[in-house]
Design a protein around this nucleic acid. Sequence first.
DNA 1: TATGAATGAGCCTTCATTCAT
DNA 2: AATGAATGAAGGCTCATTCAT
Lengths: 206, 206, 206, 206
Amino acid sequence: MPTLSSARRDPSRSGTQAGKRAAISRAAVKVFARRGFFNAQVADVARAAGIAAGTVYLYFRSKDEILVSIFERTMEEGISESRLALEGVTDPVERLRCLARLHLRRLGRDRDLAVVFQVELRQSTKFIEQLSSSQLRTYLGQLRDAIAHGQASGAFAAQINPTLAAKALFGALDEMATNWILSTRRYDLASEADDVVDLFVNGLAT
Amino acid sequence: MPTLSSARRDPSRSGTQAGKRAAISRAAVKVFARRGFFNAQVADVARAAGIAAGTVYLYFRSKDEILVSIFERTMEEGISESRLALEGVTDPVERLRCLARLHLRRLGRDRDLAVVFQVELRQSTKFIEQLSSSQLRTYLGQLRDAIAHGQASGAFAAQINPTLAAKALFGALDEMATNWILSTRRYDLASEADDVVDLFVNGLAT
Amino acid sequence: MPTLSSARRDPSRSGTQAGKRAAISRAAVKVFARRGFFNAQVADVARAAGIAAGTVYLYFRSKDEILVSIFERTMEEGISESRLALEGVTDPVERLRCLARLHLRRLGRDRDLAVVFQVELRQSTKFIEQLSSSQLRTYLGQLRDAIAHGQASGAFAAQINPTLAAKALFGALDEMATNWILSTRRYDLASEADDVVDLFVNGLAT
Amino acid sequence: MPTLSSARRDPSRSGTQAGKRAAISRAAVKVFARRGFFNAQVADVARAAGIAAGTVYLYFRSKDEILVSIFERTMEEGISESRLALEGVTDPVERLRCLARLHLRRLGRDRDLAVVFQVELRQSTKFIEQLSSSQLRTYLGQLRDAIAHGQASGAFAAQINPTLAAKALFGALDEMATNWILSTRRYDLASEADDVVDLFVNGLAT
DNA sequence: TATGAATGAGCCTTCATTCAT
DNA sequence: AATGAATGAAGGCTCATTCAT
């Protein structure tokens, strides 16, 4: 049984303000993934979270904000997880592998989250514009920095535009994830990370 | 100036059944791109096409079908354009370049179409599942065949999974397109095609 | 093969103005009975009549008018048929039997017509008011006259209000017809005519 | 003056779930009678009930269901009212009189309700089939039982089919009601009950 | 903080009718 | 006389959001 102080430290425990928010956000992942963002009703999310419909609005300004919160919460976790994982890894290729594995592992671990990320979050320019300009930029920055670092160390070709390469790598991983959720086969998404990184590092050419 | 008979052969001329359909579909690209699919009303599309709202339903079963028709029409054109362009190109790298350029050129030429493709068409699993299983599969097949052909000729490494590489390349190009429409800068999208292909062919490694 | 002159005499033969009208009206009976007046589209009626949708409006001012025409056509036929049949019948009870049998035989012979009469024609006060004030009044008059005639001859009790009795008899027959079309059993509607008349003539009392 | 507890027992008081439903249903009687079911908008009903349009759908699944609820509510009341009134009445003729009077009194008391019952509820087979197979059957059963009871007591002729006689009587009363609402004269509908029953009991014959 | 009943704006679609051919 | 493509008005229903309790 958690002590009061430990409960306060874990914001996902309901009871705290931030905890309730996270709990609703987590319930929304399930609901949005299963019914789609537009079909899902706020009341569905509330029911899944075990609260009344009106209560949602004590923690979120709108239905849209719930969706955005899923993105922000996950990206935040992902970015700091990546930062942590990269500590001590110096080999450029290993750094890329590390980021790619975390990316696909995070989505491959939670199919509902993957569906929300790969499909429901792409509803409209309204979201996409909003999202790109925030944590997604930071996340792409991590990829670009890893590549630039490899170029600085001489491991990666210097004439390549690291921003373009970062986008390309992100796009490739993103496509892996989208294919995975659309596929009826159940394979391990994370295992594709190394193949993708190998392809990017070595290229197609013999 | 087209003769009467050539005009009959061109289905984008209104007058023919298919011509009207295409005209409405083209009007819808503009409307959906500017207002978003959900915000756009069928009446807006009709007005843009210069017809009455009800007339839309003589050519489309539903609002959804209009969106799908945009995808199908463009993919159809794209696939046959690609097929045509590849004729006579034998060098594996050139084949990839050819496909990548056409992909980005098609979207870079028509920002509205690009917005619809990169954003509005990703509304929900409903669309995505439907689309992936059709022409998108064919399109990915063209990329995969180009890679497999390179492997057969010895130009590309045999141990690479051509399907995975095709998806990765598609994802990379897709990401370029999405970044382009979200960017406020107006740069030439198609010019990125070569850089992406170079990256895929040569890899990051020195 | 009908001669030209005989064809002219039969207005239900298409070719003449009145013939086309009757043909459309007959097609409408089928369509309205099967789909309901509101669900049925004018185009359905046109198709059933083997003509184009617009052509209907050369013979009818509106969809409503088609429905009314069914009523008028059938009532007209029914009234003159009744008049003819009553000629030479002098016994008051036989006169009632005659009218009742014709009423139920007409509907029992054509289930579609019965459905339109018993259900679709009762759409709204709009129709009912219109219809009651016309041929229905004439038809009720035939019943009332038959009863009044029986009273004059001393066969029927004089203190009974013949108008009320006529309405009651009509209502009873009407209910028989409605029950018949709603029943899943297929029994002979006309055979109930005598039972109803017997009941009205002799009463329940022993 | 009702006490608090008796108020709770009365479901027509708004406040309770059933009370709100009944209130909307009663408002709908007025609106449907005046404008016709098809012309009436759900918003009209809501306005008449003093609530917002959307609120109607918290108590009814559809516009159709409102119409059906009017039928069900009235039939329910009518059936139990009849049952109660028949208690202690043993004379067969009096029992018929009792049922007939209640039938016509109920409609004659509320012209709007009568219009809805005699006209708007006969919209289509959809309603009629649904309704006949429920409380209408029970109601016809009450008439049939009253007749059968008279036969058992020797007051009514045994060879008459009581079901047919019940339908005939119902049809006669129904026609009285329909004539009443269509008539521009304002006469007392209930006063016709005795005349109709007399006719059914004694017959036309002298 | 929590509830959940009430609100009311918003839109796709149908189809009777018209009219140019 | 006949066609059938085009019109455009009209309304039931949903559901995000509010607010009195």
